[in-house]
Design a protein around this nucleic acid. Structure first.
Lengths: 208, 208
DNA sequence: CGCCGAGTTGAACTGAATCAAGAAACGTGG
DNA sequence: CCACGTTTCTTGATTCAGTTCAACTCGGCG
């Protein structure tokens, strides 16, 4: 038996970042932590690989421990990036994961990454056995809802230049880790315009 | 005792639309229904009154049984409508309700309306006593998350004309119940442009 | 009856897209 | 380590969707 507890301990050590992150949302009992540790599976993926591809059902909810990725859709033959994901975030194609309908979006690795995944079925089972896990997920949904609402207002109200300024203020790391073309589609502007905005920014800020 | 059950029955009859709606998301046990019936409070408000005003904390989650309303924010002295709410929808200022921080948005009645409200505290208490109520809310969050995601993609990708076309296809009732100026800010275009788009639509569709 | 807010229509203007061509940066194989 | 093609980014010229400003119309209401 000592052996079993030791293995649980080891597993939870490897998932430390995930559990630390969860703690910020809602503190779980040891039993619930153990149940989660038994159901999350590690996944290591190389740059440019896909976590989710359009047409296929997204079965997993992921926690991104290390790396970066993006969600994009195809519109008129072009790739439109809808979001970027970085360390310590839950990742999935929400529409597909929730409804279990084929995904319209693709999730692609921008860097080699380490993820922890759990299937919808496993999670649903855990909801039945551990009320607090369902509470945790309810709270996570709340946070992500608010985030999305912010993005929506931002997209609706701001001009291209303002959206870029907002991005370098709120998430400057994106600029170093993501090619311009993907950022421009995320901001809803053409690559040329973003290039111009950026050079204008550099000139005016360098002058000061 | 017979009297008590009779009163519960009466209460649930008055809230029939709410319970029917909930049923679509997740079927509740009689005990949970009863608990909800005891905590939701009816509210009848006249046209142009406010359900939530900016600066104040939004304490309630509402179910709109009858009527119409809109959420808007002030930007550069202008009112920007972010969403419309109609019958059989849950309504709140999500950011304020979830975080219990002062609201940035106003919720105004577009018509005289009948609502059922429950406070955040009451709901949180019910989460502790009835797992299934927390599940219901988790499922509701999922649905509303997907809806918001759709609105986001729509705002980001479509042109003004396409957004209008999408609106009359998906929610034609809005046009009859809401003044043009509010619809235009919701679509993220100027009233003049919407007027032009609309007249163009009428001309081309009347010609066919 | 005249006022007032909401909607329409016109003309000028502008932010951003598109088209097109070059310049850098990047990775791959010799 | 360099030469190569490929992709990514920049810069310029033109075009276009949508804004802004301004004047006008219409329906409701004191």
């Amino acid at each position: 038996m000592a052996c079993r507890f030791f293995l649980i301990f080891i597993a939870q050590q490897r998932m430390k970042l995930l559990f630390d992150h969860i703690e910020q949302y809602y503190p779980l009992s040891p039993a619930a932590r153990e149940a989660l540790a038994e159901n999350f599976e590690e996944q290591v993926l190389a740059k440019n690989k896909y976590l989710v591809t359009e047409g296929k059902v997204c079965k997993h909810l992921y926690f991104l421990q290390q790396g970066a990725l993006r969600g994009y859709i195809h519109v008129d033959g072009k790739e439109i990036t809808n979001w970027f994901g970085f360390e310590e975030n839950f990742i999935t194609s929400f529409y597909s994961f929730i409804t279990q309908q084929p995904s319209v979006e693709n999730i692609q690795l921008l860097e080699g990454s380490i993820l922890w995944g759990i299937t919808k079925e496993q999670l649903t089972r855990l909801f039945n056995t551990h009320h607090e896990i369902e509470r945790l997920v309810r709270i996570i949904y709340e946070k992500y809802y608010i985030r999305l609402e912010e993005r929506y207002v931002n997209a609706q109200l701001r001009t291209a230049t303002e959206r870029y300024a907002h991005l370098i203020r709120e998430a400057p790391h994106i600029l170093e880790r993501v090619p311009l073309g993907q950022i421009s589609s995320y901001l809803g502007i053409s690559p040329e315009t973003l290039s111009r905005i950026r050079s204008h920014f550099n000139n005016t800020s360098a002058a000061s």
